[in-house]
Nucleic acid binder design. Structure first.
Length: 228
DNA sequence: GCGACAG
DNA sequence: ATCTTGTCGC
């Protein structure tokens, strides 16, 4: 797929924040997004321990069978340091490169990180959604901003409570396995929270994390290891 | 001022 | 993110 980047990759924090502030207005928070998508993609990036080398992986699954339809990868060097809130600028370049090598066009992108649950409401999932024009949602392993009522979150798979920040619901703590710590789902672009959570649950029938991110995580590590 | 802080 | 084996539990 072809992707046009409406900005150059920033080198300073100030430039990065300016880009987020400019693109934030392009986010579609309503959706509703794909009701019964056939192709869903998981994305992840692996990091080398002693260098800036990074490897991105995109795994496209058939949403109904969870079978792998296509995989694409890219290796490069991170050009931006890890700064909470600007995390996307560290992963986007190599992720976009991998997406460019994709032949199929997924209907939903599931990112390893936040969407709207971000201090400026423009996490990785929002940025990726705006760049590609494809519906996107973030599935994070920990919260970044916002709080939720842990006591109100049922112990069973499927239970969920709003993740609130500054009086605004920015996502949902969603239990994907009985008695296991929830994942934090937030809208990225072109999809509503309910629909995003419905897809996350369908993609995570057995493990805490959706199969999309599990496979992308494993692939990115394999590619990184083979690249050095 | 101090601590926290997606991956 | 990454450094890391076995081990407790269902």
């Amino acid at each position: 797929m072809r992707i046009d980047i409406p900005h150059s990759w920033p080198r300073t924090e100030a430039d990065a924040i300016a880009i987020q502030d400019r693109l934030r207005g392009l986010v579609d928070r309503v959706g509703p997004g794909p009701r019964e998508p056939r192709l869903v993609a998981g994305l992840d990036v692996a990091y080398a321990e002693d260098s800036n080398r990074v490897a991105a992986a995109v795994v496209v699954l058939d949403a109904r069978t969870l079978e792998v339809v296509e995989r694409a990868t890219a290796v490069g060097d991170a050009t931006f340091p890890y700064v909470p809130g600007l995390f996307a600028f560290r992963e986007l370049p190599v992720l976009v490169e991998a997406l460019t090598r994709l032949e199929s066009v997924p209907e939903l992108l599931l990112c390893d990180g936040q969407g709207l649950a971000h201090p400026r409401r423009f996490g990785l999932a929002c940025h990726l959604g705006v760049l590609t024009g494809i519906a996107a949602a973030g599935v994070a392993k920990t919260t970044f901003v916002g709080d939720y009522d842990a006591a109100a979150l049922g112990p069973r798979r499927g239970a969920g409570v709003p993740l609130v920040d500054g009086g605004e619901t920015v996502g949902r703590a969603l239990r994907t396995r009985d008695g296991v710590k929830p994942v934090y789902v937030s809208t990225g672009h072109g999809i509503d929270l309910d629909t995003a959570c419905r897809h996350v649950l369908a993609l995570a029938p057995r493990y805490r994390l959706p199969q999309t991110t599990r496979l992308a995580d494993r692939l990115s590590r394999d590619v990184l290891r083979a690249a050095r």
